[in-house]
């Protein structure tokens, strides 16, 4: 289903710390933003990889966790009413005749924007593909790394692999509609929510699902149609007949479609200048871990600085006739009004 294109001044790709802080710097200049992220919540790596881990090099915070930093940034940008589009990846960027950009996500949401800010960090988080020989051949129907439509699995023989929330949630949701369901995990301990674990154990008890201790060894089938997966466990190898495989091994970062947008790259990073952090395409900026320039440091604080300078240039593009007066939030009553503190 296609929604009407959203017209805006700025689209920020990536809602990690740098993308979020870019909202603040642009907001002070009266520029509103839409943010697109493949994850289901803001924070990027801070939320996905280390929400509980302490960060020690954020200025003025001797210690702050990834989640706290994300929460604080969300609070800081609230006055600028950013609009978030989660669970989506930008697949296409094209320049229109009027100089603006047309963006399309994998969820068919379209945007028309004057400025694109790429703040995609290490790239988009993508499900990890188990290194089983030939698994690619089955990805067009038999092997799924996420569930978009439950009905695709109705009446099928499912093999779900993993011990976290995704594996267990889908075990619980798909068991009632599947023809058969086998859950495979390398140990009889699950890191998923206790409630899900208990529900899964109950299904096991009632014989509604099979559970197998072990790890995937081999995948078999013909013409892209899966027929079985060999599981190696403490009691040797078992061949499990199935026609749908759902491996849940977490996420990894991949540069993804960014590589196809005609931007100059340096070892998978987008080359920018250090005055405005603009790419070789006028109006497309890149800030944070995804960019490269001489002396680049992949630090959150560097991304914040880059966002501030990017915003100044974006402001000139969006409001070419506006007189630029540099102001401080401590003393400017107009900035304080925007922040809602006056």
């Amino acid at each position: 289903m296609s929604n009407a294109p959203i017209e805006t001044d700025v689209v920020i790709i990536g809602a990690g710390p740098c993308g979020l802080f870019a909202v603040f710097e642009l907001g002070l200049l009266d520029i509103r933003c839409h943010l697109i992220d493949i994850l289901d919540r803001p924070g990027g790596q801070c939320a996905e990889l280390y929400p509980e881990k302490p960060i020690y090099d954020i200025p003025a915070y001797p210690i702050i966790s990834g989640q706290e930093l994300t929460d604080k940034l969300m609070e800081q940008i609230k006055p600028f009413e950013p609009e978030f589009h989660f669970n989506q990846r930008v697949d296409e960027i094209e320049r229109l005749e009027d100089g603006r950009f047309h963006l399309k996500t994998d969820d068919n949401q379209e945007f028309i924007t004057k400025i694109v800010v790429i703040a995609a960090g290490g790239g988009s988080f993508t499900p990890k593909r188990p290194p089983l020989p030939g698994i690619e051949e089955f990805e067009n129907g038999s092997v799924h790394y996420s569930v978009r439509r439950m009905s695709d699995f109705a009446g099928k023989d499912l093999l779900i692999v993993g011990g976290g929330d995704s594996a267990l949630d889908w075990t619980l949701n798909l068991a009632p509609i599947a023809n058969s369901l086998t859950l495979v995990h390398r140990r009889d301990k699950f890191r998923a929510a206790t409630d899900s674990v208990n529900k899964m154990l109950a299904l096991r008890e009632e014989g509604k699902i099979n559970f197998l201790l072990g790890q995937m060894k081999e995948i078999k089938g013909e013409n892209g149609n899966l027929s079985s997966v060999t599981i190696s466990g403490p009691d040797g190898e078992t061949e499990v007949a199935c026609n749908r495989l759902l491996p849940f091994f977490g996420l990894t970062m991949k540069l993804g479609p960014v590589a196809n947008w005609g931007l100059n790259l340096h070892e998978n990073l987008i080359t920018v200048d250090t005055e405005k952090f603009e790419t070789n395409e006028k109006g497309i900026f890149a800030v944070g871990d995804i960019n490269h320039y001489p002396g680049k440091l992949k630090l959150i604080l560097s991304g914040f600085h880059e966002a501030a300078l990017m915003a100044q240039k974006a402001n000139q593009y969006i409001y070419p006739d506006k007189k630029v007066i540099f102001q401080y939030t401590t003393s400017s009553s107009s900035l304080q009004k925007k922040l809602g503190v006056k």
Binding site: G164, H185, R186, K189, F249
Partner: peptide, 11 residues
């Protein structure tokens, strides 16, 4: 660490 090893292969 044991939880994270769930994400590794051939453990």
């Amino acid at each position: 660490e044991e939880d994270m090893l769930d994400f590794a292969f051939d453990v």
